[in-house]
Simulated scan of single mutants.
Amino acid sequence: MSDQLERLFADLLASQDKSSASLPPVHLWKPQLSGDMDMIIDREGRWIHEGGEIKRPAMVKLFASILVFEECDYFLVTPVEKWRIQVDVAPLFVVAAERETRAGYQAIKLTTVTGDVVIVDRQHPLSMQAFSGSEEPLPLVLVRRNLQALLSRNVFYEIVEWAAESSGGDDGMLSISSMGERFILGSF
């Protein structure tokens, strides 16, 4: 990302940095596996423990802050414990999108249900990924420490609408730009 873009969108990038600054240093914690926990994060980002949805947002945010992805599995970690959990599609879920245009450049700001803020850019790419059980590829964004977020249907449709407004359609691909990068959403 160019210095010009960083200066232009400094306030948005600061909101992203602020959301990740309060996270615990889970990348430094290396406990042994404690076992499997009866917890699943479903496709809509709901955290289900022993069959019941965790309804307290503060509890979900706490769990999300100690989540790691290692060797194709998700774990909740503390300095002394490591519990494997199940994730249907992605552990985080995007519920809001904002678009800022400045000096001819666009930035897409995404917010997850757990309060993570991410600006779509080279370090936080938006991509379409195939999953078993899904007829169409699903839109995901890399949020932090190799954790991805699935975009809610409403957010994805909003981004597709923005892309359609600005797409030249020369190559038959629908794409959106953010922070000087182009992200392919599909073909038409």
Rank of each mutant, 00 (worst) to 15 (best):
A164Y: 03
P57C: 04
M1I: 13
Q86L: 10
E70I: 11
P137Y: 04
L150R: 11
D171W: 10
I48D: 07
K82Q: 10
T114Y: 00
L110K: 05
V160T: 10
S20Y: 03
Q86M: 08
S132W: 00
M1W: 02
E100C: 08
I159T: 04
S166Y: 00
V60R: 15
M37D: 10
V143E: 03
A149G: 07
A96P: 00
Y157E: 14
S19R: 10
P139N: 08
G169F: 00
V68S: 10
V120K: 01
S15Y: 01
G51H: 07
S132T: 13
Q86P: 00
A14R: 14
R99A: 00
H27D: 15
D17K: 15
F156R: 09
L142S: 12
K82P: 08
I85G: 02
E71I: 12
E165I: 11
I41F: 03
G52L: 13
H27I: 09
T114Q: 11
E100R: 13
T112W: 02
D38H: 10
L185V: 06
S166G: 11
S187Y: 00
K55T: 14
D38V: 11
Q4S: 15
R46A: 09
L138D: 05
S132A: 10
L67V: 07
M59Q: 14
V60K: 12
A107R: 02
Q106V: 02
I48L: 05
I40Y: 03
I85W: 02
G133P: 06
M173I: 13
P31L: 02
E100Y: 05
P91I: 01
P24C: 09
H124Q: 05
D73L: 08
S19W: 05
P25L: 07
D88R: 11
G180F: 00
V80R: 15
